[in-house]
């Protein structure tokens, strides 16, 4: 299952987010990394150092683009100039699939630079799906949408977040970038069972996963990407892997970034949870076979 049409049938392993403090190490030491995820907006420049670094990375590594400002859930139409820049970058990187968030963040030509939660309504799902289809056609690559962490909910919502996600991806016929940490963060902030979320999404559409660390405050959890992955998130990741299959996985670490080796070691921990998921899956399969016999 992991290589599917939503990631253009690419069977990628454990990747890392490409971050500025690691540029020197990566370019000089050329460590073995299965793939890098880049923040598209950091390289949608017209020239200079960002594109120089990107081209050097592309000579050595496979890259997948991850965006933070497409705002697929904003009611506004797309900024065509933005899409053209993104398409130029897609051509440059050869990203097999492209991800951005199932959120909104711009209105009337202004940008909040935040990943704001959607109202979970059928009208919002329809509008968002229209925009995803449009963007995928324009960009010429499969798009996967990522569930965001959230700290609020709207009265107008008509369904759960996972029902909304499912509705959008079915209408748009697109993939899912399943952020396991975001599910966990939102589950604590809103009081739902994160396993319900993972159990009830269309697993065949999951083309990539994200894992990350978060920060607990007195009354809520904030998605800070500045810590190692916590145990409950690894457990949820194992469960998701069992349901979705072994999937291209990316560790996000965006603040208080430690050494490259430390980040890479944290990411590679995913392998032990993948093995665990395989064992559980195999045991359940054997039990079913015994029952059938």
């Amino acid at each position: 299952m992991p290589a599917n049409r939503f990631n253009a049938f690419h069977d990628y392993g454990i990747g890392l987010g490409l971050r500025v403090p690691h540029y020197g190490h990566i370019l000089s030491e050329k460590p073995t990394v299965d793939w890098f995820e880049i923040i598209s907006e950091n390289f949608m420049a017209d020239g200079g150092r960002p594109l120089e670094v990107l081209d050097q990375i592309l000579e050595q590594y496979r890259v997948v683009q991850h965006g933070v400002s497409l705002y697929l859930g904003s009611a506004d139409r797309f900024d065509r100039g933005h899409l053209r820049r993104l398409k130029n970058l897609v051509k440059r990187t050869g990203t097999p699939w492209l991800t951005d968030h199932l959120c909104w963040g711009s209105v009337d030509g202004t940008y909040t630079h935040d990943l704001l939660p959607m109202p979970y309504t059928f009208a919002a799902a329809k509008r968002t799906a229209e925009k995803i289809r449009y963007a995928a056609d324009f960009l010429g690559v499969p798009i996967c949408v990522e569930n965001v962490s959230s700290y609020t909910e709207y009265h107008v919502s008509e369904m759960t977040e996972w029902e909304f996600l499912s509705e959008v991806v079915e209408l748009a016929d697109c993939g899912i970038l399943l952020d396991v940490n975001n599910i966990y963060v939102s589950s604590k902030n809103h009081g739902f069972d994160p396993y319900d979320y993972v159990n009830h999404i269309p697993h065949h559409r999951v083309a990539q996963m994200h894992i990350a660390g978060h920060t607990k405050f007195e009354k809520y959890i904030l998605d800070t990407h500045d810590h190692p992955v916590l145990d409950p998130v690894w457990k949820l990741y194992t469960h998701a892997t069992r349901l979705c299959g072994v999937t291209a996985t990316l560790l996000e670490w965006d603040d208080r970034i430690p050494s490259f080796e430390e980040v890479h070691d944290e990411a590679l921990k995913a392998n032990q949870y993948i093995a665990e998921a395989r064992q559980v899956g195999a045991a359940k399969k054997a039990a079913r076979a015994v029952r059938r016999a």
């Binding site: 009611a75 909104w104 209105v107 202004t110 909040t112 309504t121 509008r127 709207y154 107008v156």
Partner: peptide, 23 residues
Amino acid sequence: APSALRTTSDLLGLQRFMAAALR
């Protein structure tokens, strides 16, 4: 903010309201 969300226009209304609050 709109009290119900049935159209893209309602969605725009909600987003304008929240954006104004954040700003």
